[in-house]
């Protein structure tokens, strides 16, 4: 239960961090970025991760900002989850993120855990990757070849895997601010608050009167990576949110799902749960959309 030995570096600029990531350790082995550490440090302690070098990005200034400009909300990669949870800017511009964050771990975890760290770790059961996919967030990455922006649809590539190259770090996340008449909800089921969710659903809908004009749904815990439920979204647009529409959306989303069975839940239960949570999330999102109109 103690981490294996590693080399530790704490760069004070993005350029320095990138250089440390790009340079292979002398005796081989992995290089890992340490942000909030709430996923990486347990992996180190359990020796599921035994990197040769750790690049601690916490001393890089300028990565903790939350700003909204021109209808785009930008969160620095090192924004602590608890800071975002209490942010008025996030609550207004990205109610889905505000709804999702309280589901992450516990207060003491969110005090340290970062927005960027959770997204880069890309746990398929985690909340923030699901939110990022749901909202078509853009991930800003810095590497040896400079800066680039990666759309969420291309960012999550599989089991704990992202499009980030070995010499790249995630520096910011951008999402479009919500339009008036938009509501969001994040619903998940875990055996105990803070545990990994068996299934989670992120939903955001925009209403014109009672009619859905835009719908976004993404699921966690049903595949190796978060999954967008495009068919369920299509089943909602142009309709009022009633029991029939909710059933159509839930059926459309779950038809294509092939979740895994594990200690926590069987595949059949996960699939059932996805349908239940989609109904609940869309219903709650629609209620909030009406309130915000």
């Amino acid at each position: 239960m103690k981490p294996a030995a590693f080399d530790y570096q704490s760069p004070t600029s993005i350029a320095e961090a990138v250089q440390m990531l790009a340079e292979p350790p002398e005796d081989g082995g992995d290089v890992k970025v340490l942000a909030g550490g709430q996923s990486l440090v347990p992996l180190l302690s359990l020796r599921l991760a035994t990197p040769a070098r750790i690049v601690d990005i916490n001393r890089i200034p300028g990565l903790t900002g939350i700003s909204e400009e021109g209808g785009v909300l930008t969160l620095g990669a090192l924004v602590r989850q608890r800071t975002a949870e209490h942010s008025d800017v996030v609550a207004r511009a990205c109610p889905l993120m505000a709804a999702a964050i309280p589901h992450i771990g516990h207060t003491a975890i969110r005090n340290r855990g970062t927005i960027g760290g959770s997204i880069a770790h890309a746990d398929s059961a985690a909340e923030l990757p699901t939110v990022a996919l749901c909202l078509d967030a853009e991930m800003v990455a810095h590497g040896s070849n400079g800066e680039r922006t990666i759309p969420a649809a291309e960012f999550f590539t599989g089991f704990f895997s992202t499009a980030l190259a070995e010499d790249e770090i995630l520096t910011a996340v951008r999402v479009r601010s919500v339009a008036p008449g938009t509501g969001a909800a994040y619903e998940e089921l875990a055996r105990r608050h803070g545990d990994f969710a068996m299934v989670g659903v992120a939903a955001q809908v925009r209403l014109d009167g009672d009619t859905v004009t835009e719908a976004r749904i993404a699921l966690s815990g049903v595949d190796a990576q978060p999954v967008r439920a495009s068919k369920a979204e299509a089943a909602l647009v142009g309709h009022t949110v009633d029991e029939q529409t909710l059933s159509a959306a839930a059926d459309a989303a779950t038809a294509d799902l092939h979740p895994a069975s594990d200690l926590h839940a069987s595949a059949a239960y996960r699939k059932h749960l996805a349908g239940v949570l989609i109904r609940r999330a869309v219903r709650n999102a629609a209620t909030r959309a009406k309130e915000s109109a």
Binding site: L34, G37, A108, I109, R112
Partner: peptide, 13 residues
């Protein structure tokens, strides 16, 4: 000023 798990942070941090 805020609660944290001391097992989830390195002393050097």
């Amino acid at each position: 000023g805020v609660t944290a798990r001391s097992c989830l942070q390195l002393a050097v941090q």
